[in-house]
């Protein structure tokens, strides 16, 4: 069996809970082999429910999903043997050591005794836990737990990796260490399906991004294309002499409509994508206006998110489940 397509294909995926509440409401998506797909959305948007269905832990109410060519409903065992998953909140036993976790996980996958040992050493090295390998997980930091979680997901050499909010609650350093590791895996040809509520995470890692809101995908494309579609750049200028503020603002208005700016500065959203910083500098020069600061702000996924859902995602990642 096992169809020809080695990525992830989802068509009309639905999951209902309780009295007809649709946590996932007709999701279509396609993840190419070797791609990092960023699944972006706030808490409760349906990200984790989708991941649970794709990893065969939750049967869909309707729709079809194929992972590595295997149907998640009819070929659960095949799907599970092909994928690795690090689900939300590192699910670890505080009383076992890192090495013991890896040995157990490898044994559950039917990996032989000798190979188990070697695999554990290699993966511990890979996620930087060699020194902590024989300490109990109860004493690990949040970042160490997530890294062990990742190592556990890799024990059986999966071709597709599901990471459900792998960096939620981590400090910036641990976060970037995990990003590096995920990028490295993708370079080695592993397909990564990554859910996140951090826009910059999707921006930094993902080849393509899908934005999910209220159980539906509202946008899907490469980060650059999404940004280009919604956002126009903006320019903010701060005159060297505060008395010039009005004149500077007038010059800027030739390039687009004024938008809110910091005190003592003026800003506009650029109307024409072909115009840039250089044009503005020249125009200011012609009027003999000198500026102390000039900034070009590229559109971000924040703008995309705002445009697509009508809400800001700001700070969502810092909130606890359920309060967002």
């Amino acid at each position: 069996m096992g169809g020809s397509f080695r990525g992830i294909e989802v068509e009309g995926l639905v999951r209902e809970f309780g009295k007809g509440f649709r946590a996932v409401d007709g999701v279509d998506l396609r993840v190419e082999p070797g791609e990092i797909y960023g699944f972006l959305g706030p808490n409760g948007a349906g990200k984790s429910t989708t991941v649970l269905m794709l990893t065969t832990l939750l049967p869909p109410t309707a729709g079809v999903a194929r992972v590595a060519g295997y149907d998640v409903v009819k070929q659960g065992a095949e799907v599970r043997s092909t994928i690795g998953a690090a689900l939300q909140e590192a699910a670890l036993d505080p009383f076992l050591t890192g090495r013991e976790h890896l040995a157990l996980q490898a044994a559950m996958h039917g990996i032989g005794r000798k190979e188990r040992r070697g695999r554990a050493v290699e993966l511990l090295e890979r996620v930087g836990l060699t020194e902590a390998a024989d300490r109990r997980v109860g004493g690990y930091s949040g970042g160490m737990k997530r890294r062990l979680d990742l190592a556990l997901a890799l024990v059986h050499g999966p071709r597709i990796l599901f990471l459900d909010e792998p960096t939620t609650g981590l400090d910036p350093q641990s976060r970037s260490a995990l990003w590096d590791e995920v990028s490295r895996l993708a370079k080695e040809g592993v397909t990564v399906f990554l859910t996140t509520q951090y826009l910059e995470e999707a921006d930094a890692l993902a080849d393509r991004v899908g934005i999910i809101d209220h159980g539906k995908i509202v946008a899907e494309d490469t980060p650059d294309a999404l940004k280009a579609e919604v956002g126009r750049s903006s320019i903010e200028a701060r005159p060297a002499d505060p008395r010039d503020l009005d004149d500077v603002a007038r010059v800027l208005e030739q390039f687009g409509e004024p938008i809110a700016a910091a005190n003592g500065s003026a800003a506009v959203r650029l109307e024409d994508k072909s115009q840039g910083l250089a044009d503005v500098v020249r125009a200011l020069d012609r009027q003999d206006l000198r500026v102390a600061g000039l900034e070009l702000n590229e559109p971000s996924l924040d703008d995309v998110y705002l445009a697509k859902t009508g809400r800001k995602l700001e700070g969502a990642g810092d909130r606890e489940e359920g309060t967002a």
């Binding site: 699910a91 996980q105 996958h109």
Partner: peptide, 16 residues
């Protein structure tokens, strides 16, 4: 505890 932490889910992902 294994259910609460998701450890059981992790085991379920294997051919257990």
């Amino acid at each position: 505890k294994d259910i609460e932490t998701g450890f059981l889910d992790r085991l379920s992902m294997t051919p257990m």
